[in-house]
Design a protein around this nucleic acid. Structure first.
Lengths: 218, 218
DNA sequence: TAAGAAAGTAACCAGTTAGTGCGTTAGGTG
DNA sequence: CACCTAACGCACTAACTGGTTACTTTCTTA
């Protein structure tokens, strides 16, 4: 050995303790791993490594792999529902509000591809983790009433037809974006085109807005 | 010992050898297991047991777990595409043909829930198995041209508007059924209603037909 | 009918994997 | 500053899991 490394720069850091930061790093790594491999396929050791945390910490903070998955899933739902509420659609003209929601949903899926995979994984497990979550139900009610409000205002303004079920419409808005993106790999093969190319994505968004607008038009 | 059992009825079956039947039993069991747990979560031992076959036979006939999955997946795609071709939509009035396709797609997903889960699993793996399949591409081309034909005839008859991309329409027809069913567990919690109840399913089908008809109407 | 190919079986193996026991260390508090 | 709680880390294990080895049994055919 020749020179001792500068302790300030390369010392094996005394690693200041920070429970919240460690938790956050674990959740972030877990979200990525669960999204990449699903709840069953994700490896706890890999999550610990990517989080630069010890595996023991995962069990300390989240109890089990399933506990960790449940927290990740719950956070994901809270995140999208919170973002939706921030759109302030009630200040917009009904048609603009609806178009904005379609655009937001599409953009959210594109920017948060983990969301889709987490939801798929949860449905493979028959929603056993989500069932335990009370928060999600509260947020979902707000989500439905938001659409209900847009529809009512649209009908009153004479721009939407009456009798549309907000739940069915919500499902449809999600479906036309979600399906395209979750099945982008098999879809690109079947239709022999790159569904993720920039112009393909733009075309799909236009098509989706069109689909929803024609569906609700008076 | 008193009486010898009737060999025809109760003999500890000499287990007549039948490669095709064994293969078929393995494929059937594999489809169910892969659908229930995904490609990663399914267990080869469980498949062998359910197929009443020896695990060694799986490796003999299909090489590996992935080889087995690929065959199951390929069969699933061929099955739905074949059933679609049998609909004979080219003899129907365009609007009837399209409605029939929407109804068929919905009914197929309902009667073959494994299909959806297999496709989801394949997309989690970025379609690495489907990429190797040449058959699927051939069938898919026929699928697209079928929709193309319906659209052209509809435009010519003045009942559909022009300029609709058959691929986008195909994706949308699949999406509005597929999403509802694959996310039926989380959906039932979020919307606080049983999405699989008989009347809920009927309502969704009606809504979907309506969505597609309004989308293509002139 | 002898022989060999194909179908079928049981036991086994090496590598993983979720989960733990137990000891160490940082840092806030009395 | 002594003490104690909570953060952190290492090394281990019991159960599993995809895949294989070595073998027996059945059927076909020359």
């Amino acid at each position: 050995m020749t020179t001792l490394p500068d302790p300030v720069e390369t010392a094996a850091k005394p690693r200041t303790r920070d429970a919240e930061a460690t938790k956050a790093r674990i959740l972030d790594a877990a979200k990525k791993e669960f999204a990449k491999s699903g709840m069953g396929g994700a490896r706890v050791d890999v999550i610990a490594e990517k989080a630069k945390a010890n595996k023991r910490m995962i069990y300390h903070y989240f109890g089990s792999k399933e506990g960790l998955f449940q927290t990740v899933l719950e956070n994901a739902y809270v995140d999208i529902r919170t973002a939706e509420q921030k759109l302030n659609l009630d200040h917009l003209e009904p048609r603009d509000a609806l178009e904005r929601l379609v655009r937001f949903t599409w953009a959210y899926y594109l920017r948060n591809p983990e969301f889709i995979t987490l939801v798929n994984s949860e449905n493979l497990h028959r929603a056993k983790h989500l069932k335990k979550s009370e928060v999600v139900k509260v947020y979902s009610r707000k989500f439905v009433s938001m659409m209900d409000d847009i529809l009512s205002r649209g009908v009153a303004a004479g721009v939407f037809r009456a009798g549309i079920d907000p739940v069915q419409l919500n499902i449809t808005v999600a479906a036309i974006g979600y399906y395209y993106l979750t099945n982008r790999f098999t879809g690109s093969i079947m239709f022999e085109r790159d569904l993720m190319a920039k112009d393909a994505l733009e075309e799909r968004l236009r098509f989706n807005i069109d689909t929803i607008m024609r569906l609700v038009a008076a």
